[in-house]
Design a protein around this nucleic acid. Sequence first.
DNA 1: CGAAAAATTGATCGACATCAATCTGTGTGG
DNA 2: CCACACAGATTGATGTCGATCAATTTTTCG
Lengths: 227, 227
Amino acid sequence: MTTPSTGTIACRSCDLYEVCRLCGMIALSEQRGLQRTGALRTLKPGTRLYRAGEPAHSLFAVRQGMLKTVDVGTDGEERIVSVNTPGDMLGMEAFGNRIYAQDVVALQPTVCCELPLSMLSEQYSRVRELAAALINLLSRASAPRPMLARGSIRERVAGFILDLGARLEQRGLNGRQFSLGMTRQEIANLLDTRIETVSRTIQKLGRERAIDIVGQKVTLRSLKPAA
Amino acid sequence: MTTPSTGTIACRSCDLYEVCRLCGMIALSEQRGLQRTGALRTLKPGTRLYRAGEPAHSLFAVRQGMLKTVDVGTDGEERIVSVNTPGDMLGMEAFGNRIYAQDVVALQPTVCCELPLSMLSEQYSRVRELAAALINLLSRASAPRPMLARGSIRERVAGFILDLGARLEQRGLNGRQFSLGMTRQEIANLLDTRIETVSRTIQKLGRERAIDIVGQKVTLRSLKPAA
DNA sequence: CGAAAAATTGATCGACATCAATCTGTGTGG
DNA sequence: CCACACAGATTGATGTCGATCAATTTTTCG
């Protein structure tokens, strides 16, 4: 069986934390710290969280595992646009028109928190702080993500691995030893290259002792950004 | 002298329209339709609208001309992340933390509308509709932009030109005959390739009668997406 | 165990980078 | 007004990185 490639994130380090809190989705229990109360969605690998064009009822936050955000072009070709790790918010692009804009598919056994949009729009017309929190959240989300499919293959692969590690670290998970969580094919798609090239590059990084690599398990050694 | 590569956009087709309206920035004059009242910023080519890391006081909307959004990496290398055309909103990533996240530089003589953030946060705590409009706006902005630096060079260049045309068209400007508004070098940077390659590819499209090209002036003929 | 998917490795080829030279247009000063 | 300078753009020759084709090997899972 596949096992989830990440542990479970703490609510404190989630993008949606403030919003959940203001919605009363997180109960403060005296002894045990934070505890969430809302709905969870559990996904097997390959399962869709939602589909582009579908009417949107909810925002999601990744709690455990990993997903990919996929853009299906006019030609029907799949392009992996981003990889979503614990603490990430999903579906915010649907807040306005209530239509999801991409496909989101679990790469691993994955758990997501679900926040109904209806609850949010009800509440933010009453709770002033919530509107501010949402605006903050969306504002941050509109900041530029580092584009991974640029530069030499070496730079792209290194950038991908470092980015993934940094994001896990940032959420309080282990960012120096983790699972890539996806196949070489999927990495190749994300980085706009070929599976053989990804394989060769990863092997080379291993031979150079920049990383340890066994299957999808990586340990960072001396991998640095750029060249 | 360089002349602006685009005409002036109508307020109606601007991303910020609803927000401006609710802020009372647009006065309805009976005879003459819409008329805006707020501050304008005029920029010469090469001038910065704002800089990454700088404290943010305002949102902007492009009114006329073109700008580039530039990401300066740790190595000091410039990467053009996107090109901003009339009707686009700039600076929304700073709404939360009040710090701009990229550099934005005029490519042409350019005019932008300026909306002070202070005014917005004051007003949206009073005007309920405004919070909703902002959330809508930011939500749309977080939707995925088509990534231009993917696929063969042919695809990237064609994609770039078609995207630019479509965006102008969408704002009520001429999307079949327009100026690229930037040098081959800047296009190369945006598309993650080299100036010679951009030049050759554009010339080839011209020879194939897919476009007419004279310097930066393009006329679309039979250019189609994909290969 | 056996089948299927994923990953690795090798050999060859082609698209794009690189190096180099020339051309074109635009603004400047004599 | 013309000549010059300079930036931008084009064009050619050559090299190289990554794509492609092909064959195993390794891992996963029924």
